[in-house]
Write a protein that binds this DNA or RNA. Structure first.
Lengths: 208, 208
DNA sequence: ACCTGAACACCGTTCAAGT
DNA sequence: ACCTGAACACCGTTCAAGT
């Protein structure tokens, strides 16, 4: 599983095949069917391996801090393993909740627990859960769009490959190249989180 | 291109192969290399086909309304073509901006234009752009997680397949099944949009 | 009982051979 | 000049044949 992740990190998701993986492990390709029933199972395993590294502590003393911590941890993981992000985000699409591997559900359960403890009722907890992960996934997706075409270039326009764009049709994009490369992902995530936390606080009973 | 999308809709992204597509078109598999250089080009073509259906009008009189309209249009498209969503969101990952097909950049350019017209300066426009699409993509990703395992079931728990989960480890999730199925995606998107629009308004010079 | 090689039905892509 | 069939180097998966 960890070798599978390494393969993905180095060569991309597309390069991960049962045969290549078996070769990297000095085993026969069919021996993998002992550990995973499918290639799908294997991909799920990679996702679970990643999510294990971002445990949400439902008993954390300050729940807002815990959410901030988890969000940044997830972002860090995505930046460390950009090639695995499509897997991380898309694997659960079109797989109904109850049929997903448990490792993919644990973060959700922990979030719900934390939200309950923080004082949110059931409906609010579910809404908060979806907002939180939606925000997180959206941000990661967004930040990873900022990939650089030619890292060695010093000019922002060239580095993003934007010089190739037809001048007439994309005036804004060209002129905003530098603003685009100045993007600070961590700060943006913080901003989004603050907004979410404010709106969550509004859902709490007045006591808290 | 439209037959490619149909194939994806019916059988999923995985089922789209050059050979299957050629067969569906009553052509030889290699004839496709006239229209697309790669399989990748073909997938980009599908994404562009979808994005063409969600044009952002940079000259819209009320920019907030235009953003709301576009967001809901995009959501609608995602719900119509759930199988294509992974493509829609992941295709541009790790492809630098300037190297992306133009159809994938047009919405960005239009947004930047709209933001400028609304009075945002360059840096604010870029930030708003990322927030907007991040929010949108995140929400769509999130809403599509609500796929149903057994649509014919009447009980929420069973319909999501949640009865399979180990009782001890996932108490919250089981008890929140009904709250989960009551989720209203359009309303949630509206809530997120309102929050964004408020924060954008705060960035505007006081005149507006 | 465990493992594995060959085999099957697919891929994307190339290229020489047809018209 | 255009198209296409066979061919190449891969897939995921099955299964009978080995130990």
């Amino acid at each position: 599983m960890v070798t599978a992740l390494e393969l993905i990190d180095v060569e991309g998701v597309e390069a991960l095949s049962l045969r290549r993986l078996a070769q990297a492990l000095d085993r026969s390709a069919m021996a993998l069917y002992r550990h995973a029933e499918n290639k799908g199972d294997l991909l799920d395993g990679v996702v679970e391996l990643l999510l294990e590294q971002v445990v949400l502590d439902a008993d954390a003393p300050a729940w807002q801090d815990e959410l901030r911590r988890v969000a940044h941890r997830f972002r860090g993981l995505a930046l460390e393993h950009p090639n695995a992000v499509p897997l991380l985000l898309a694997r659960s699409l079109s797989t109904p909740l109850g049929l997903r591997p448990l490792g993919m559900l644990r973060p959700l359960e922990a979030f719900l627990q934390l939200a309950n403890r923080a004082g949110l009722d059931d409906a609010a907890a579910v809404a908060a859960c979806r907002s939180f992960f939606g925000l997180l996934h959206g941000h990661v997706l967004d930040e990873l769009q900022g990939v650089v075409a030619y890292p060695e270039e010093r000019d922002d326009l060239l580095r993003l490959g934007l010089h190739r764009l037809p001048l007439g049709e994309f005036p804004r994009m060209r002129s905003l190249a530098s603003a685009m490369s100045a993007y600070d992902g961590a700060a943006q995530l913080d901003r989004l989180l603050e907004a979410l936390l404010v709106s969550l606080a509004a859902d709490l009973p007045p006591s808290g």
